[in-house]
Every structure is written in C-alpha cells, then in structure tokens.
Amino acid sequence: MAFVKMQTRLSMVAACALALMATAPAQAATDPLNPRPANAAAKPTFDLTGNWWVTQPEGAAGFKPDPPLKPEPMKVWQEVNDKRAGGENFRDKSGLCLPLGMPLILTRVYPIQVVQDAKKITIIYEYENNVRWIFIDGRPHPGPDDLIPTFMGHSIGWWEGDTLVVDTIGMNEEPDIQPGVPHTKDLHIVERIKLTPEGFNDELTLTDPNLFEKPWVTAKRYKKSDSELQEYHCLPENNHFAVGADGVLRAVEPPKQ
C-alpha cells in the first residue's frame, strides 16, 4: 500500500510541475544518460498496444522538411539528389538486407505491431522483423563503457502530461538517416508522441553536432490498423537490386535457376 500512496503523491507532484511548465520554459536536461525530468509522470498516460500503419502524406521515402545540414554533409546530400534526379537510387543500403535501424525504419510503409507492458514498449516492424524496445521503467541509458551501438540504438521513455517522450542514443553508423544523410555516433533522437483522433503523431528532433546546423525536427503519423503483420523476408539472393562498387543501387538480373 505504501507503494500506491507514494505513486499518488508523485502524480500530484507531477501535476503541479506540469502546471508550472505551461508558463516556465523546461530546464535543459543535465544528464544525457538520464534525461528523464523530475516532473515526468509517475504512470503511463496511454497504451500504444495494437497494430498501426504509418501515413505518408509527405511521400513514402525519407523525412520532411529537408535536413538543416552543415556544408560538408550538404555536398553529399546534393550529390544524392542529383543522382536520384538521374534515376539512380544512390547510397540506399536496404538492398543488402541489413536492418534499417533508427530512424530509417520509420520511412518504411509496412505495418507495425506495438506491445506495451509495465517495463517497456516493444515495436515490431513487419519489415524484416526489425524490433525496437523503449524502456519505460525508469532506467537510464547505459554509460559509454556499456553502450554497444546497435541498429535501433538504446531508447528510454517517459510521459510528460499527454506526451510520451522517447530518448534514443547509441545508433550504429551503418545505415544513413535517409539515403545521403549519414550520421555519426553522436546522433541523438528525441521523439514526442501524442495521441490523435486516428492514431498517434511522432514528432522527432534529431541532433548530431557533426551533421546538422541546428536540430532537425520532422514527424511521422500513424493510424490504427486492423490487419495482422505478415512475414517480410529480405534475402540478398532474391533481390533484384544490388549496390555496385560505385555505391549505386541498380536493378540486376535475377539469378538463373
């Protein structure tokens, strides 16, 4: 019972803190490994369990608006856009059947399954069974000695009022953010997820001091799906696209049987 009482008290504190937040700007997080603010809600505000589709009013690939790149990465990005204008799908490694990782996985149109429990939010992407775990049990990110870079990175989440905030670090440098926008180990993503009448909205703020002039703010929207996820299996030998020595992804002849 003591636990329950403490929770009630904490949520009252959280409610007061939220009221204050409406007028005072949020303080900058002091500890990047534990950015959960003291005024985070004690309990989840909503449950995302279910199947979802990403809606893509801005188009199927990449993120909008364009990234605020520094001059050097801007050259790469422009080269990619030039190649694409010429019909070449430059620098897209998805043909190698590697996981897409965060945040590139968010640019795929296949449905996702979310299971939320007391400890974590598990997101399963139909695309190659890529799986993401967002820990909501109050744990911090692992320190530099323990953090092994992965495709999805390490995600922790908490609620601030009606918003689920997800903080992700530790994404490996294998996949680009989107074709032509490679990132470094310093990529940091903060997502603010809010329910909408049809599903939820995921606003992403990406920072990487090596890459961006300023934080890049973009969004993905989701709606409820009634359909079940299917098997999506990418096999290099079945692929009709391959990356050449020049880094260009091209259609190739299917292997002869």
């Binding site: 309990k43 909503f46 449950d47 369990t49 279910g50 429990d117 007391a118």
Partner: peptide, 18 residues
Amino acid sequence: NKTIKSAVGLLTVAYVIG
C-alpha cells in the same frame, strides 16, 4: 506478488486507444 500488483496499478489507466 508485489510486481503484479504494481503492474495492475500502472495498467488501470491504460487502453485509452483500444
């Protein structure tokens, strides 16, 4: 056990969408 009890507490507020 205690863990399950606290899970019930957490989940009572859940399922806004479903």
